[in-house]
């Protein structure tokens, strides 16, 4: 008992230190345009984008057990709808991105309705098929460049800010907001009554259902929420790229496979996992990106190694041995 209390006490104080470190890192990132170079900023924008995508995939798979391999559908829809709303509806860029995400969430209702008829692996395949349908459809739309894609007109891009530096600054803060807010949103959700439902579903769906949690409805809500935020991220990604093609927008590799890697390595079913996973993923990529195919083989190898050593991922393994928690969600009976 005493030794348990001691480790608990130490766990809590280490958690506090970790939280302070993280806060300092976020504070540093908040002023990154001051200290970081152009290529560093570009890298950080990607990090924030993948952080948001990973948080959303983790919310889906890690909590509701919905394994989607079709999240690229929502990245692509976010990108294409953003281009369409900005170019043809004349919406200001900063409005077009969230507007595209809202439209995507609306589209996610019927696609979810279809995908939710399917169970387990069929659900996964269903989400992929839906994403392919969107990719093939996007290639058919001549106004958006068909299969070869389309660029955001320079005049539109310039509407963000006059100077190149100014534009990059605006873009950086959009990415920063999308990334950090994704973590805070998931944290807030998990601390609410709905977090109880989600965690219960994660641990035992039949028991959650028997205790009054309308599991289907909760899962559907999360599916739509993930579609919204994934689309928001997609809109930003293609604002940064300034050019969109069906293959890039609906890339299974980029927007789902890498994201799954991040979540699985970092630790599925926790807020900390995707954060750690993103750091590991980009660290590996920086080291090994010019190894060509070997880079992908290494990624696969690392994923398999993590699965063999501890399939709960880095954070899962830490959590099983300590009481560490950076984003506490537990409710204590005092």
């Amino acid at each position: 008992m005493t030794s348990m209390d001691m480790t608990q006490g130490r766990g809590i104080s280490v958690s506090v230190v970790l939280r302070l470190v993280l806060l300092a890192v976020v504070a540093g990132l908040a002023v990154a345009p001051v200290w970081a170079g152009r290529s560093d900023l570009r890298l950080l924008m990607e990090v924030f984008s993948f952080l948001a995508l990973a948080q959303m995939w983790n919310l889906l798979a890690g909590y509701t057990g919905l394994i989607s391999v079709g999240q690229q559908a929502f990245v692509g829809l976010g990108g294409y709808l953003f281009f369409a709303l900005a170019m043809f509806a004349g919406l200001p860029l900063l409005i077009a991105i969230p507007a595209a995400a809202i439209a995507t969430a609306v589209i996610a209702v019927p696609t979810g309705w279809i995908a939710f008829r399917l169970q387990g692996p069929y659900f996964a395949i269903g989400t992929w098929v839906i994403a392919e349908v969107f990719r093939l459809s996007a290639a058919q739309i001549g106004a958006l460049g068909g299969g070869s894609g389309i660029s955001l007109p320079v005049a539109l891009a310039k509407s963000l800010a006059d100077s190149r530096g100014g534009r990059e600054m605006v873009m950086y803060y959009i990415a920063f907001t999308i990334g950090i807010a994704s973590v805070l949103m998931v944290w807030g959700l998990l601390r609410s009554k709905w977090g109880l439902a989600l965690t219960a579903i994660r641990d035992s769906e039949p028991a959650a259902e028997a205790m009054g949690v309308a599991t289907r409805r909760v899962k559907f809500m999360i599916y739509v929420l993930a579609a919204f935020w994934t689309s928001l991220t997609g809109g930003f990604v293609f604002l940064q790229k300034l050019r969109i093609t069906p293959d890039a927008a609906f890339s299974l590799n980029e927007w789902t496979a890498f994201v799954i890697f991040i979540v699985v390595i970092g630790g599925i079913g926790s807020i900390e996992g995707p954060v750690i996973g993103v750091v590991i993923f980009f660290a590996l990529r920086e080291v090994a990106s010019d190894w060509g195919t070997w880079y992908l083989i290494m990624m696969g190898g690392i994923a398999i190694a993590v699965m063999l050593v501890d399939k709960r991922g880095v954070w899962g393994a830490i959590r099983a041995r300590t009481n560490l928690s950076i984003f506490p969600v537990t409710k204590v009976l005092d």
Partner: peptide
């Protein structure tokens, strides 16, 4: 038993 293993008893 189907406990929610990742939650506390109280939760």
């Amino acid at each position: 038993p189907h406990p929610f293993v990742g939650m506390s008893v109280y939760e």
